[in-house]
Design a protein around this nucleic acid. Structure first.
Length: 452
RNA sequence: GUGGUUAUAGCUCAGUUGGUUAGAGCACCAGAUUGUGGUUCUGGGGGUCGUGGGUUCAAAUCCCAUUAGCCACCCCA
């Protein structure tokens, strides 16, 4: 036997039954994005390497998939003994690592044509040279919506509704939208007199879910925070109460922190805007421990978790100032969110929430009897299709058992048999493949029945 | 980058202290059923046991190496 083919580590094939479910998820999210006024864009799978490097930190740069130059790429190489320096010499292009940086690049390149504030959504694959493991792949889809060029917190409030509506439409019933603000985290740092340790504090707090209070304290100490500051910090972030109580609590703590006060004001405004938006199903959880690892967030931050299954966050997002600054256009603020398609898929599977209709195959399959029957069948097939009914004909005059088995596997709702008998009567045998019932109907009757 | 674990049919996996011709379920093909699928029954095809080397009269089984997958950590979605 020839060597078995395989696909690269961390990549996946999606067979039809998986794709139908994935498309259901993507279509649902897409329709909500559109409804809120977001417009689609796509960017190339590959970017110039220089566009990507330096945007994701040292760790991120290592995980960028580089594309080898064509031709005699070694001729131009200078640093054959240093992989770090050699890479940009032999690879000028790389696969996109996320959708946000290419979006920033897009905005800068098209700034004269764009109508700001620019609201765009983008659903495309991204690639990371990570070690794959459960729920983590080297190729996966991101599903982003961002608005750039406005500081208005209306968008923040709207994103809560977008999360809520999309997840509800997908069938989730119990989920929490966690929200906080990077300025509040800044407030913590200032309140404990450690503002220069801001990033370390964020990274440590972000792990509270996983490692617990003692783990966070350990991490803070490892990152050289004084013990008193660490304790004080833990006390702040573990305060329990309603969203309003939390805001009031922090307000006192942040009396001397401009950043902290700003964060609270922003939170209040987002809540006030959102209060005007109706039919909210999830819960908004002002989460004092929410931090998010990504360094570019500067304002509101989001994370969504489902309470129905054990799973990490299924959505994330936040506001970032000056995203386009690195590409030479400072002063543009943006805010965006993302749905974790793969995780949502797993959650819906586990909860058995994929509607059966998602799996529907073709509506009608015509049986092939060959000869004159086949000619009439083709004509009927064409009529069905013109009437908007998804249909196909079995390509060969095979045994009926084989043809029906095929129809069954394909999830055909009906089969239509036009044999010699039916030719003479003009009434064709339409069989309901679920109930097994079969009746002789004219073409008009069939069309009427199937259009229901 | 660090650690753990696995590798046997298309898929999921059995395979005893090394011992005849390496098995099962699912899937596939055919028949029972010449114009009717899903259920059932019967039969069939399909594997140099990841790869390379070693120990042995004898290796899927023991040893070494190697490759790949999976899982966890780091980081992240």
């Amino acid at each position: 036997m020839a060597q078995k083919p395989s696909i690269p580590k961390g990549t996946r094939d999606f067979p039809p039954e998986v794709m139908l479910r994935r498309e259901f998820i993507l279509d649902t999210i897409r329709s909500v994005y559109k409804k809120y006024g977001y417009q689609p864009i796509e960017t190339p799978a590959m970017e110039n390497l220089s566009v990507l490097t330096g945007k994701y930190g040292d760790e991120g740069d290592r995980l960028i998939f580089k594309i080898l130059n064509s031709g005699d790429f070694l001729k131009k190489a200078q640093h054959l003994d240093d992989a770090q320096k050699l890479a940009p010499e032999i690879a000028e292009k790389a696969l996109r690592y996320d959708l946000t940086v290419p979006f920033a690049r897009f905005v800068v390149m098209n700034q004269n044509e764009i109508n700001f504030p620019f609201k765009r959504y983008q659903i495309q694959a991204v690639w990371r040279g990570d070690r794959p493991q459960k729920g983590r792949y080297r190729e996966f889809f991101q599903c982003d919506a961002d608005v750039v060029g406005s500081d208005s917190l209306i968008f923040e409030a709207e994103f809560i509704s977008i999360y809520d509506e999309a997840l509800s439409k997908l069938g989730l019933k119990d989920f929490s939208i966690r929200i906080s603000n990077r300025k509040i985290l800044n407030g913590y740092a200032e309140a404990v007199g450690q503002s220069e340790k801001f990033q370390d504090i964020c990274t440590a707090i972000d792990k509270l879910d996983k490692v617990g209070e003692s783990g966070v304290k350990k991490e803070l100490l490892e990152r050289e925070l004084p013990e008193a500051a660490a304790d004080q910090l833990l006390q702040m972030i573990t305060f329990a109460g309603s969203n309003d109580e939390k805001l009031a609590y922090l307000e006192k703590l942040f009396e001397k922190s401009e950043s902290g006060k700003k964060g609270i004001a922003e939170m209040r405004e987002v809540f006030a805007f959102h209060k005007q938006m109706e039919s909210f199903r999830g819960t908004i959880d002002f989460d004092l421990t929410l931090a998010r690892g990504l360094t570019y967030y500067t304002g509101t931050i989001y994370e969504v978790v489902t309470n129905e299954v054990q799973m990490g966050s299924i959505c994330g997002g936040g506001r970032y100032d000056n995203l386009t600054g690195v590409f030479g256009k400072p002063g543009l603020s943006g805010v965006g969110i993302s749905f974790g398609v793969d995780r949502i898929y797993d959650v819906l599977m586990e909860l058995n929430l994929f509607d059966e209709r998602v799996m529907d195959g073709i509506q009608v399959m015509l049986i092939n009897f060959g000869g004159e029957s086949l000619m009439t069948s083709l004509k009927v097939l064409s009529s069905l299709r013109q009437a908007g009914i998804s249909s196909e004909i079995y390509p060969d005059e095979a045994k009926l058992k084989k043809q029906f088995t095929y129809a069954n596997r394909k999830n055909a709702a009906f089969t239509l048999a036009i044999g010699d008998d039916e030719l003479s009567t003009g009434k064709y045998q339409l069989k309901d493949m679920i109930s097994g019932e079969q009746q002789a109907l004219s073409l008009e009757e069939i069309l009427a029945r199937l259009k229901e």
